[in-house]
Design a protein around this nucleic acid. Structure first.
Lengths: 309, 309
DNA sequence: CCTTTGTGCTTCGTAATTTGCAGCACCATA
DNA sequence: TATGGTGCTGCAAATTACGAAGCACAAAGG
């Protein structure tokens, strides 16, 4: 869009940290870009960038403005999506940030289901921890976020929130695999592997351990569920994951056992968007589908857990 | 702002109803304007106007777009206001729509009080009935609305809502002036003057009369409180008004008596803004001041009513 | 029935704006 | 002190937007 060009350039300068670098990114000369910025600052009535040795950085006024710019660009996209929708095209793009646990099974299935009905809708999936996901929403880089244990609920609209128990993950021949229900202290007696502090599941574990005499002494700390999954097969260790990130009925090398709610509080899986924002048609519909799927999730989990026995 | 020029032109075309008229308003030639519209429609990907004999009109896509445009312009204004505020200037503009009753005493006093602290803030006041006030908010032509008995609360955020009884207004020598408390049926026994149906106070009166055997038979219907005020001095008639629109202690030709709540329900004086919108600093502060003043209003009324006896 | 008056749209030469190139002044670091 | 980075600035060239006039069309007016 032509009339947003200057605004996009400002955004580019902000991202690049210097006018010359941004000029290269946007395929124009630095002089042209520089003059556009100066011109904009003049008609805006205040400087947007503070000039320092080695580049530029947004000043407070610029921070305010960049937020407006991103909102404006995102909102124009929404309008175009709605227009495309009312001309019957059902086109559009959905950008979603999600926790790692969502990514292996749940999200691919949901996207495939949606695209089966609307083939000309495309998707961006950003795997983010709970902090980064919220940052994505704020910067209008994601339309939706589906994360465990969000940090700052204040700036967002919660579309749905469901609870998920924490599961212990271990090899099929692990001593604990025999028990039906596990206590947290059983798990901590064995070597255990946990995610780093920024991950929601670790937050819940830390919360649980805080009120116990037993301490958590992780053998390994890894942010990759893939790694944990293979690690517990090598050394009779215990890992942790939410059931939505597990293939409850289909894995014959691993065993999954829920932890008692008294030990580890359930995780809140929350679907959110930027507060007050009107989503594009595609995003709004996909959010509805996600909400429906999440609502029917508990029953689904029970069914799968029964199968796995 | 340069980059909004095309958008403002589109808005102008929409308001004028024809490209040539809008071109004249905006001081450019019709050919230039026409080309900008065509160019915009091309890069937007869809027509915005439907061409008909004698002019143009927005199509559904255009309606969506114009809403976006107005929102963007208003939001940019908000950003500039915030920027001015953080550079310590306390400048800005507040645009408010209000009921007729607010306009003679309350609003001027409030604006004067605000401007005493922030002299470089300017105001626009639009006197509107309850329907038109909401339309103003939707079109981003007013930042705030202070109206009695709003119609569609759905699209707006309510900042505050206070109750006001309906008062009967009559000449000082009117037979009813002797009574301390009035019933509606007393008033209807005399010639009475009421506002037209779109005014909030009439809505309340109609509501009240609906459950009575007595009917309302207005001698006159007028949308001007000024007219009503003088009319009741000429012919021993009764008018109606909210106390916020009355000079309870200072008028020696008129008498005001509250109507019992059992007869006529209290009117809801509601301060609203467009849903989800972030107001400019000046508007937000003025809204706060209004809210504080409205909250302390009941005591104030009691004090004034006591004085007037 | 033809004229008038309004519409949106197109063409073309010109005016205004933006761009790119080169260079300047500045600052931190090596 | 040299070097490599920055933002900024004249000046000519290129691009873009503009204004004046005219075209085709459609609804009213005499």
């Amino acid at each position: 869009m032509k009339h947003l060009q200057t605004l996009k350039l400002i955004d580019a300068v902000n991202k690049a940290g210097s006018i010359r670098k941004a000029a290269e990114d946007m395929n124009i000369t630095s002089s042209a870009l520089n003059r556009r910025i100066l011109g904009f600052e003049e008609e805006f009535g205040a400087p947007i960038f503070e000039r320092l040795h080695g580049g530029v950085r947004l000043n407070p006024a610029g921070e305010l403005l960049i937020q407006h710019i991103r909102g404006q660009i995102a909102d124009l996209e929404r309008v175009r999506s709605q227009v495309a929708d009312l001309s019957g095209l059902r086109r559009g793009h959905v950008s979603i940030a999600c926790s790692q646990a969502i990514q292996p099974y749940f999200m691919p299935a949901q996207i495939a289901a949606y695209r089966a009905e609307h083939p000309s809708v495309s998707f961006s999936v950003h795997v983010r921890d709970r902090d980064a996901a919220e940052e994505d929403l704020r910067a209008f880089e994601s339309d939706l976020a589906l994360v465990f244990e969000p940090v700052h609920l204040g700036d967002f609209d919660v579309l749905l929130s469901v609870e998920q128990p924490v599961y212990a993950v271990m090899a099929r021949d692990h001593p604990l695999a025999a028990k039906e229900k596990l206590r947290l202290r059983d798990c901590l007696g064995f070597p255990h592997i946990v995610p780093p502090k920024r991950i929601g599941i670790r937050y819940l574990l830390d919360l649980a351990v805080a009120s116990m005499s037993q301490k958590m002494e992780p053998t390994a700390e890894a942010d990759s569920f893939e790694f944990m999954r293979h690690y517990v097969q090598q050394e009779a260790a215990v890992g942790f994951q939410f059931p939505i990130g597990l293939n409850l009925s289909g894995d014959d090398r691993l065993t999954f056992r829920p932890l008692a709610k008294e030990d580890v509080p359930y995780g809140n899986l929350t679907l959110m968007q930027m507060r007050g924002r009107t989503l594009s048609v595609a995003s709004a519909r996909f959010a509805n589908q996600l909400a429906a799927a999440l609502n029917s999730l508990p029953n689904e989990l029970i069914r799968l857990a029964r199968q796995s026995r």
